[in-house]
Simulated scan of single mutants.
Amino acid sequence: MTFLQKLGFWRKKERKEPEAQLLSKPWREINWRDKQSALQSVKNYKPKTDGQQLRILLHGPVGAGKSSFINSVQSVLQGRMYIQALVENMSHDYFTITYTTYNIPKDPETFYPFVLSDIMGLGPTGVQVDDVKLAMMGKVKEGYRFNRDSRLSEDDAFYNNHPTDNDKVHVLVCVIDAYTLPFMKQEVQEKICQIRIEATHLNIPQVAIFTKIDDVSPEIKDNLQNVYKVNYLKERMEQFSVNVGIPMNCIFPVKNYHEEIDLNSDVDSLILSALKHIINLGDNCINFHKSQSCAMSCQSMNM
């Protein structure tokens, strides 16, 4: 038996899920028949200030699916399979090691007014909380190579001393593997909590994305529309909410595109549902900071 075969055997034996109990009605409603309205809402989004970008920062444990979520979002908005963020399927080590931002083309000459930023995965030796905080503050330049042993210093060439509004993060997204969540190491959960506290101090809203939901139960794998009927998944989301403090209405289950070669309407619907709420929260953050800046300017003028 090869190593990979043994690994697969262990996963099946060790992580066998209990039979799911389907609720009589979904606990959250999704309009599966009309993904176009959600798609159009995302396509129509435009910040109030010209030139403003909404920055979405993704973080989470190694292998949770951050890069796959970025590719899935781009695929839905492009209307075809789109792979820009590289994904590692063989290694459980840190694959994303640099600060990388992805712009999404809207047409041949323009981009959507929101960007997705990716960082090194969390772990006992992963990205440091201080570096995530600096990224949220807009003080990490594109291409910075994260160091597991030390944070970005102010004298580093990749330290941004004068971040603009576009450099700062407007919504923080924690990407979680729903299947392996019960086996998450305590150190990783503590990092998630610490990062959430730092984001709260910066008035940045936080969202959690649950990926690989089709691995949680065969009912979801057979029919994605069962996602809000599987009580077992709901209980995992509720426990995560209690553990890290992200409210349930800010936690969204999605299925990333992984082995498919064509788009699927149900997969798109879940991704768009999450993305629409992420954008709304990020826009609220932009407007809040704009109003705070205006208030401070007015106070300075009146002094």
Results as ranks from 00 to 15, higher is better:
residue 6 K to W: 06
residue 7 L to A: 11
residue 7 L to P: 12
residue 10 W to D: 11
residue 11 R to H: 15
residue 13 K to Y: 03
residue 14 E to T: 13
residue 15 R to Q: 13
residue 19 E to M: 11
residue 20 A to Y: 13
residue 24 S to F: 06
residue 25 K to G: 11
residue 26 P to L: 09
residue 26 P to E: 08
residue 29 E to Q: 10
residue 31 N to D: 12
residue 34 D to Y: 06
residue 37 S to K: 14
residue 39 L to R: 05
residue 39 L to D: 07
residue 40 Q to W: 11
residue 41 S to I: 05
residue 42 V to H: 07
residue 43 K to L: 13
residue 45 Y to N: 10
residue 57 L to G: 00
residue 57 L to P: 07
residue 58 L to S: 00
residue 59 H to R: 01
residue 60 G to K: 00
residue 62 V to N: 13
residue 62 V to C: 08
residue 65 G to T: 02
residue 70 I to W: 03
residue 72 S to N: 01
residue 78 Q to N: 02
residue 78 Q to K: 05
residue 79 G to Y: 03
residue 80 R to T: 10
residue 83 I to G: 09
residue 84 Q to I: 02
residue 85 A to N: 09
residue 86 L to P: 15
residue 91 S to Y: 07
residue 94 Y to Q: 02
residue 96 T to F: 08
residue 102 Y to L: 12
residue 113 P to C: 13
residue 113 P to F: 09
residue 129 V to I: 13
residue 129 V to C: 15
residue 132 V to S: 11
residue 134 L to E: 10
residue 135 A to P: 04
residue 136 M to G: 12
residue 139 K to Y: 01
residue 144 Y to S: 08
residue 148 R to G: 06
residue 153 S to K: 10
residue 154 E to H: 02
residue 154 E to F: 12
residue 157 A to T: 08
residue 158 F to N: 12
residue 163 P to N: 07
residue 167 D to V: 15
residue 168 K to W: 15
residue 168 K to R: 15
residue 169 V to P: 05
residue 169 V to G: 09
residue 172 L to D: 01
residue 173 V to M: 03
residue 184 M to E: 15
residue 186 Q to R: 11
residue 204 I to M: 02
residue 204 I to R: 00
residue 207 V to P: 05
residue 209 I to H: 00
residue 209 I to G: 01
residue 212 K to L: 01
residue 214 D to T: 02
residue 215 D to F: 07
residue 216 V to A: 14
residue 219 E to D: 04
residue 221 K to M: 05
residue 224 L to P: 08
residue 231 N to Q: 03
residue 232 Y to A: 09
residue 232 Y to T: 04
residue 235 E to M: 06
residue 238 E to P: 06
residue 245 G to V: 09
residue 259 E to G: 12
residue 262 D to F: 08
residue 264 N to I: 11
residue 267 V to R: 09
residue 267 V to F: 07
residue 271 I to K: 06
residue 274 A to Q: 07
residue 285 C to K: 02
residue 287 N to A: 06
residue 288 F to P: 05
residue 288 F to Y: 05
residue 291 S to P: 01
residue 292 Q to A: 11
residue 293 S to F: 14
residue 294 C to W: 10
residue 298 C to R: 14
residue 299 Q to A: 13
residue 300 S to V: 14
residue 300 S to T: 13
residue 301 M to T: 15
